[in-house]
């Protein structure tokens, strides 16, 4: 892995400056129907799609400005298709 990744603040930098935080997951939440099942929780905590293709994932410019952002990357070629800042949401308050 030696591709370049564009920080939303700092621009293209070698990937070693970043921390990878895995694919974007959906955190199960309580609803009117009650708590998520153990199965749903386990899926969220331990299972990943591990796609061969475009994947949405978390990155942090760890040794740079520190920003957390989302990248869409093709896991086969390391081509970065898009970079976005997250849109925070406090669901389940």
């Amino acid at each position: 892995m030696s591709f370049l990744l564009s920080c939303p603040h700092c621009g293209p930098r070698p990937v070693d400056e970043y921390a990878f935080f895995g694919e974007v997951t959906r955190r199960p939440e309580k609803s009117e129907n009650g708590s998520p099942s153990l199965r749903e929780l386990t899926e969220y905590v331990y299972f990943r799609d591990n796609v061969a293709g475009p994947q949405r994932e978390w990155w942090q410019h760890r040794t740079g400005c520190g920003e957390w952002f989302l990248a869409e990357r093709d896991t086969r070629t390391n081509e970065v298709l898009s970079i976005t800042l997250p849109e925070p949401s406090r669901k389940h308050l």
Partner: peptide
């Protein structure tokens, strides 16, 4: 620190 910042990137407090 990174953990706090990540969660707050998700939640936005």
């Amino acid at each position: 620190t990174a953990w706090f910042e990540w969660w707050n990137a998700v939640w936005g407090y």
